[in-house]
Design a protein around this nucleic acid. Structure first.
Lengths: 337, 337
DNA sequence: CCGTCATGGTTAATCGGTTGACCAAGCCCA
DNA sequence: TGGGCTTGGTCAACCGATTAACCATGACGG
């Protein structure tokens, strides 16, 4: 006996080889390998098969299996920008973990938002008989659905398309906005500025709505002069500093962490301390930024991991199906409040 | 004629259906679909098949194809931390683009560095008959190679294992260190501090070697008092400020962008301007940080995208094969020098 | 007028498994 | 002693392709 020879060289071990080695038919091997309760296999034969499997280092061919049973174990994930931020990575991570949990494997494709590439990617996934496709974007927005996507089960992740008939899984921007505001409120702030983004988006309107809802719930009148618009980058936050200060706010809810980062710089130049003079809360929980600012930034997390995970649950029909699933954005408390 | 009925419902169109519709055998369909030059197909039959394909919305089953020709078009990518940083995303992106270019599809798995999960992931990939596996880590380091990995072709990406026999693709730390230092040198600095990391790693030794090499090439004696150790985070950079200043440096090469970010804060507290009083160069090119600091940070990029792409090239044997491929770290010029 | 050669396609085996239908042997009991 | 049931396993069709080998048919040359 030459011992177990796994290894990449020579003939790949198939079920036939195992059958021959164990002195049984391939059907029997199939039965014991898959532990089919329907089939009656004697202890002796079962043992011989198992030994042969171990001895030969047999590994089932998942593709052949898929072919014969008709159902595949692939889930496709097409993303518009895998590499731009850690966000897409988190979606992939969540989707992969959840898919794995249900015996599925993730096929990923990056499209850079190019519609042609997008269609190629989807086509390729269809050819690989995916169980369904997760179509994701790196920031929450409305999208035009690629034609091809309708040819299989699909779920939109971090994006949506009304009337497309496709279920969507998105972050709950309004609840997030409320949460951010509540954090400031809880610390005793009454004059809270909101540095919203200039770009129209679900985030823009949702977070504003949340901000207003939180104030209202706290019995504070909405004061238009407290909400300012800023480009959603560091520069925007920095540039808005004076304006924010002029409105007399003691706490600022920034549309995202990058804006908060800019505001930090601005505040510092004005000789103000965070959180003693002005409290700041961000949004997104972009780790590299938020956790490492001075002081570390309190913020609200965008639940990308959960978005990906929920996406596969919806795809597999494991989630009570509604048109759009909103995933909560939890607060992340650090030292800026 | 009911028109083209693509769509996810009803029977999936197979080659048999097309054959029947076109009045030919499946073999003929296969020949025209794959444009086999070896087979002689008449214009008429060819046309009928193409029409039937279009009419029925036929799509080849990639899995069946793989099974019959024995070669698969999958490449597996196992990563230890997809979501932690944008880095892993960039590796995935590069690998995916390159794989795609050669007709391959990427299968990804995240393992969180857990060896058990790692083995499961690799096993699953082997069962799916991957052409080979890319094993990647999110920061450059030496790793123990999982047993299972030897059962197929594998390439280590952003990590290495001497004597494992596996080819590795890693960033060229030394060249990167030289580049960073050269940037400062080119701006006229002669007293250049190096804020190295406290953690032993290829980055630690490689970048230091590069720093020394650059100085030597410029005819500047190596001065030990100019190299300081700092925790590789924002805090480390901040805490090292006084020490750096005390050594009289006019330019600082920081081990990474986060350290530079901390140094920025420290320098600012000392009332010093960047780059007028002190020039700073980072490493990693972590976009969210580097591009948005005030002033934007000049740095050296870690070529993650290229690492992933080179990984699949090596795997597919498209790259002149050497034990370890070192990918250059290019400078990214912004305003901190 | 027949043998030969293109031309155009078909047949059937194969890839690695799965699974419903079928069969042989042994046992039990009337 | 023979009919029926259980136990243990085999047979063979099938999943959706690919591909080597083979077979008509018609044209053409001698």
């Amino acid at each position: 006996m030459s011992g177990t020879d796994h290894g990449r060289h020579g003939h790949v071990v198939t079920m036939r080889d195992v059958a021959k080695a164990a002195g049984v038919s391939v059907a029997t091997v199939s039965h014991v390998v898959n532990n089919k309760p329907s089939a009656r296999i004697g202890d002796d034969a079962r043992r011989r098969v198992q030994e042969a499997v171990a001895e030969l280092g047999y590994r089932p061919n998942a593709l052949a299996k898929t072919l014969s049973q008709g159902s595949s174990r692939f889930i496709g994930l097409v993303a518009d920008a895998i590499a731009t931020t850690p966000f897409a990575g988190q979606i992939i991570h969540g989707a992969q973990d959840e898919a794995w949990k249900h015996g599925y494997v993730l096929l990923v494709a990056n499209t850079d938002g190019n519609p042609a590439v997008e269609n190629d990617a989807i086509t390729m996934m269809l050819e690989h008989q995916v169980r369904g496709i997760l179509y994701s974007t790196w920031y929450h927005r409305e999208i035009p659905v690629p034609e091809t996507l309708h040819q299989t089960d699909a779920v939109l992740v971090n994006c949506f398309a009304d009337d497309s008939g496709l279920p969507a899984v998105v972050p709950d921007e309004e609840q997030g906005g409320r949460t951010a505001t509540d954090e400031l409120l809880a610390a005793g702030h009454r004059r809270i500025a909101f540095l919203n983004t200039t770009t129209p988006s679900p985030a823009q309107t949702g977070r504003l709505a949340g901000y207003r809802a939180a104030l209202e719930a706290a019995g504070i009148a909405y004061d238009e002069s407290l909400v300012h618009l800023a480009e959603p980058q560091q520069e925007g936050g920095y540039d808005a500093t004076a304006e924010v200060l002029a409105s007399g706010a003691t706490g600022v809810f920034c549309h995202n962490d990058r804006v908060a980062m800019g505001l930090y710089d601005g505040l510092r130049e004005h000789g103000l301390r965070i959180p003693e003079d002005v409290a700041v809360v961000g949004f997104d929980n972009q780790d590299v930024i938020a956790a490492h600012l001075r002081p570390p930034l309190s913020t609200v997390a965008l639940p990308h991991y959960e978005l990906g995970a929920a996406g596969v649950r919806v795809l597999l029909g494991l989630e009570p199906s509604v048109d759009v699933v909103r995933v909560a954005c939890p607060p992340v408390r650090r030292q800026s409040i």
